[in-house]
Design a protein around this nucleic acid. Structure first.
Lengths: 212, 212
DNA sequence: GCCTATTCTAAACGTATGTTTTAAACAGGT
DNA sequence: ACCTGTTTAAAACATACGTTTAGAATAGGC
């Protein structure tokens, strides 16, 4: 019997928003259920009520936006593919890489929605040792598999192994860029500042294209 | 009054070894002082006795090998520089990048000593939010500064900003490779296995060279 | 207005945490 | 042997943790 909630913008959603942010800034263990519930202004037991456990909450944060992001990736891939076919040419390496990296990078720089927080959350989630995470990552792996044939088509000299390694490296650059977005200015003694999303994306895509 | 210790290979060192490993596999918060002391077979209070606090222990783990690693980097840089001068040529880009990446990557693949654990520890430490870490990273930043003029010499078309960005990306690929060393086989459906240290290093250096 | 399922609240539980304290054991130096 | 500084030991401290429980509040369906 679905009803309207009492407390404004849905307590459940508010918990997800808050924990997304906290998990983005700290490790799983360093974020307490109490810090979540107090910041979300819900009762302590709400987390266990809605998500069963702290681990369940973490999982829910991941799932909420993962599907959407991977759909965006596949959508961009599809678009680029159609455009290439229409122009009677192969898909470009930069288009492939851009399709993989643009959703997270754009989300990262998206100030308005909570997506930027999600991307930082994701990059951190990859480091959690929970055996859950491997299962959770499956979805992303499946998406990448869809890209592999395209890479092979335009770089036939590469083995599958080569391609997986390079995708692996690309994700590395990306996650690092995300996790240390704020540290580039420290490294460069303020020579570099956080630029626009396009600037960051272009630098990143460029680096990866050449590396590939 | 410096004396010989009673319990074999120095309790203090044993604590560092154990916590290095535990911090390499989990976040700061997820590692308990008790798990350290019990695995190191020392009394619970030993951590606070030797290092003042858990945070102090973490810091000590970092410091123990950081200086050595950065010395190795500078040593390789110096070697390459001398070799290039002797041959009357500019230093190669690959030599520069190799000097930065070889120490951590070789340590990573070094089965014998505890260095491999340290490298994983390091990559994780970068993500700890403690304001301490920024100070701790200064040392590495200083080393990279020594490399910048060389990059500028052989790539005069690049601005300092460009160079910092690319060093930034390189560290990203490296840390990711380290943190997800075990996951490459998951991503590739077992197509890729953890190869030799040379293989990994070469792939990595190559990717970074081209990206640069 | 009553019923039922859902949501929220407050309190408590048991355990694990980092740190401190107090005292015992120990190892040279003289 | 005695002293002194260092290291180990066991216990206790206070707090923070994730989770559970039992009951109050709430909202629609009829």
């Amino acid at each position: 019997m679905k009803t309207k909630k009492s407390k404004g913008p849905d307590a459940k959603e508010r918990i997800l928003d808050v924990s997304e942010e906290l998990f983005a800034n700290g490790s799983f263990a360093s974020v307490s259920v109490r810090s979540v519930t107090s910041k979300a202004e819900v009762n302590l037991s709400a987390v266990n009520y809605y998500f069963g456990s702290k681990q369940g909450l973490f999982h829910a944060v991941y799932v909420r936006r993962a599907t959407l992001m991977n759909h965006e990736r596949l959508h961009l891939l599809h678009e680029a593919d159609e455009k290439a076919q229409a122009e009677g040419r192969d898909i470009l390496l930069s288009e492939l890489i851009s399709a993989m990296l643009t959703p997270p990078i754009f989300w990262l720089c998206d100030e308005e929605k909570g997506f930027s927080v999600y991307i930082r959350f994701l990059a951190r989630a990859y480091l959690e040792e929970s055996s859950d995470m491997d299962k959770v990552l499956r979805q992303e792996v499946d998406v990448f598999d869809r890209f592999v044939p395209y890479f092979q088509k335009i770089r036939p000299e590469l083995t599958k192994e080569d391609i997986y390694w390079r995708i692996h490296f690309m994700m590395g650059v990306m996650h690092h860029t995300i996790n240390h977005f704020h540290r580039i200015s420290l490294l460069s003694h303020k020579a570099c500042e956080k630029g626009s999303s396009e600037d960051t994306r272009d630098r990143l895509v460029n680096f990866c294209c050449e590396g590939f």
